[in-house]
Design a binder for these strands. Structure first.
Lengths: 327, 327
DNA sequence: CTGAAAGCGCTTACAG
DNA sequence: CTGAAAGCGCTTACAG
């Protein structure tokens, strides 16, 4: 690896001039050309580590997520990556498995590697951001809040739960269950609240808790709870899934029992990119995960650039995509 | 951020001693204790950038893949991450979208960030590794070869294609199509070769090319080709999907037409973690993607540690998981 | 075991 | 516009 000194020597200039060329600082035309030519000959690439050490900031941003195997988060990651890459930043994907210790480790690494900033889907509402804030690194929350007064992008979760439920009501279903994620995850809770509001309004005599289930945001969680609901003396005739994976698990069980939607109505908050049903067979409230990533990345880049306006929270709305009756 | 100098001062030792403590080099018990205490008080974390610049090597490995939204590659990433993290390395996930330019950029970044090594699922068989090799950074190929004499982990693709096809033959199907990925991607080609071998042996009179289709390794590719095959004057009664996404797309079409497996036999090379059918409804030749990641990461760590034995290629076998007849 | 000192490859205030 | 020089925070050969 050639260094700035070798390039300088070959080009007959000082190392400072070489540095300026690579940082877009004004330099006379002749020197510019000479440096370019020398760099080309030596296949010079600036050493990012040295630059980072000197500037105390790297062109890397950390994306910290709880589950890399959930397509919702990979879609989010795509959005982040697209924006970051165009701005010359690379993205380190950090998977926490919802474990606070793993998350803390990654945040520590972000500090000690001088990463430019962090986009964080917090493992828990007790995530500690004191150190990263003390280090002056901007953090943008995605999907979930953090308890800190920082920029964030979230989905309109209550509204999504509501839209999913209302659609099932309109379609004529009367016993509509709700399967959502852990009570302590705000997205899970809010989507359930949306469901509950519709149930309370439409079926004032119903006991909402009878058909509400908290589970994990995973395929097997959806399976278990769906099976349990079907065992009920008076089983539901429809269900709202609090996220994509729960929806997948629940639909698997329904398919196995010959209850494929619309026999039992299903509305999923999220998307099913790998459904083996027709993509239009299930009602979705599609969440713009990619857009969330794009928005968060843009906000983060603004903060990295020094923007110090008060913290903003952007709320993104899901989009109802009703199931098409089978052709 | 406290530095080694501040810790040294507080502990009453030299910076060199502090460094030694954090690198596990022998130090007297009293100094060890003093340094530890001082570091604790100052919340000292070693600056990784400085260490990297000095040592010319960072504790980061790059995982370069063509499609971050394909669960096969996220599963692979999980395996890599698990091993890497335990060894104190972090993983940068680099998504190339199968574009050589993006891939080249990431490889360049790996060099200029002094990353310890690269795990690469190459975007193409023309990927250029000259620079990264010249920089002395080890590269381990996964999923696909590279044309370079380096360590690699691949699936037994031909055998997988064969096993999938043989299973359909045993189940009584007679016109078995094959939908695979781009001809130039070796995994796509080899799986098709496995299919072809079985067809040639079992149905010597058949024209194999009639039912073989190259497409993209994507859901919509599977959809298109499946639709096309069903339009045939004499449509197939079964099909082998060359990867998970093709399988998803093809099954979507079949479900829409009321041809859900086993009405039309389906065997997929790969897994369907988000199928909305019963997980046991489709025959799979499951590919150990996670294990591939684990193996590749271990090999890479060995190379990083200085191992210079001749290049090895590990071949991992898929596992046939026959569809269970509907209960 | 320990410390002083050099050096990893850059960037940038300073002086011209 | 340009260069000499300091310094980012470590690690490590060297000498003791």
């Amino acid at each position: 690896m050639a260094t700035i000194y070798e390039v300088a020597k070959l080009a007959g200039v000082s190392p400072a001039t070489v540095s300026r060329v690579f940082n877009g600082v004004a330099v006379s035309d002749e020197k510019l050309a000479a440096v370019r030519e020398a760099a080309r000959q030596l296949k010079f690439t600036p050493n990012r580590t040295a630059r980072t050490l000197r500037k105390q900031e790297s062109e890397v941003i950390a994306l910290v997520i709880p589950d890399i195997e959930n397509p919702y988060f990979t879609e989010l990651a795509r959005g982040v990556e697209d924006v970051a890459q165009k701005a010359g930043y690379s993205v380190v994907l950090c998977n926490t498995d919802s474990q606070l210790e793993k998350e803390a480790t990654y945040l520590q690494i972000a500090i000690s590697e001088h990463m430019a900033g962090v986009i964080l889907a917090a493992a828990s509402d007790t995530t500690n951001l004191d150190d990263i804030q003390a280090a002056g690194r901007p953090v943008v929350a995605v999907d979930r809040g953090t308890g800190y007064d920082i920029d964030g992008v979230v989905m309109a979760n209550r509204m999504a739960g509501q839209a999913a439920t209302e659609h099932l009501v309109r379609a004529g279903y009367r016993r509509i269950a709700c399967i959502t994620g852990p009570r302590l995850i705000e997205t899970a809770y809010e989507r359930a609240q949306g469901w509950r509001a519709v149930i309370a309004r439409q079926f004032p005599d119903a006991d909402p808790d009878e058909l509400l289930r908290y589970s994990t945001f995973r395929v097997d969680g959806g399976r278990e709870v769906m099976e349990e609901l079907l065992e009920l003396p008076e089983p539901p005739d429809a269900m709202v899934a609090g996220n994509n994976l729960l929806g997948v698990g629940a639909i698997q069980v329904l398919t196995e029992r010959g209850l494929t939607p619309p026999k039992l109505g299903v509305a999923v908050v999220g998307s099913l990119p790998f459904t083996t049903l027709s993509p239009s067979a299930v009602t979705l409230v599609r969440l713009p995960a990619r857009h969330m990533g794009v928005t968060a990345a843009k906000m983060l880049l603004e903060r990295i650039a020094g923007d110090d306006q008060p913290a903003r929270t952007v709320v993104l709305r899901g989009e109802l995509q009703p199931a098409r009756p089978a052709d």
